[in-house]
């Protein structure tokens, strides 16, 4: 069937340009940048995190409810609305929970060589992802469950900022099983806890490196 679709006449009328602008180059687009300028003073948990990060240590916080470990720490378990006060030091190794290969440039980030991989890195012992770039790895080889480790900047460039880790590179260790990787692993541990068979005090225990 080929029902005749009426042409939207509403869009068919041409704009009549006044003579004065009819023969000049037409404006087709306009730059309208929007910027928000913050005076950023981190809260207690982020202060502690950044201070440790400036010493190449990674701090998380443990939930008092079920032992889940958040990194970077925010001072709260957002699921239950309770404060988190116990700090946990995490290793600079983990696995890829999910990732994205980016093929198009971002304005203002000419330093990112295309294509690049950004990923949620699940540090050993953490229950949520930690965002970072994946390097020293072909995009075709990147996969969920792949074990990675941090590549830090040179010591004289380490500061109390979020930018101390250049990227995460594959370690070559055996992968974390797909259904135990990233958020799936967290869901599996939650289910195990609900069954009474899990080990709430050992989050992310599915990692080979922590067994």
């Amino acid at each position: 069937m080929s029902a005749k679709i009426p042409k939207p006449t509403a869009l068919a009328k041409p704009v009549q340009l006044p003579e004065r602008i009819a023969n000049v180059e037409q404006v087709r687009s306009v730059r309208t940048p929007i910027s928000l300028n913050y005076d950023f003073i981190p809260g207690q948990a982020a202060q502690a995190y950044l201070t440790a990060f400036g010493e190449k240590r990674i701090l998380g916080q443990r939930s008092p409810v079920d032992g889940a470990v958040f990194v970077p720490p925010r001072g709260v378990d957002p699921r239950f609305g309770v404060a988190t006060t116990e700090y946990v030091e995490l290793p600079d190794k983990g696995h890829i929970g999910s990732f994205c290969v980016t093929q198009v440039p971002i304005p203002g980030r000419d330093d990112l060589e295309l294509p690049y991989i950004s990923a949620w890195i699940f540090l050993d012992g953490a229950d949520i992802g930690f965002i970072g770039l994946v390097g020293e790895c072909d995009t075709a080889d990147c996969r969920i469950g792949m074990r990675v480790e941090a590549v830090w900047k040179d010591d004289d460039q380490i500061a109390q900022t979020a930018e101390n880790i250049k990227w995460w590179r594959p370690t070559g260790e055996p992968d974390v099983a797909f259904d135990q990787a990233g958020g799936r692993g967290f869901a599996a541990r939650q289910a195990a806890r609900a069954d009474g068979t899990g080990h709430a005090s050992q989050p992310n225990s599915a990692n080979p490196a922590s067994q």
Partner: peptide, 23 residues
Amino acid sequence: GRLRADLVLEYPFNRTTGEIIGA
């Protein structure tokens, strides 16, 4: 003694105008 930093969050929009606003 707390950490602080200037932080700029910027969206570099390039908006297509259409014919009338372009004119």
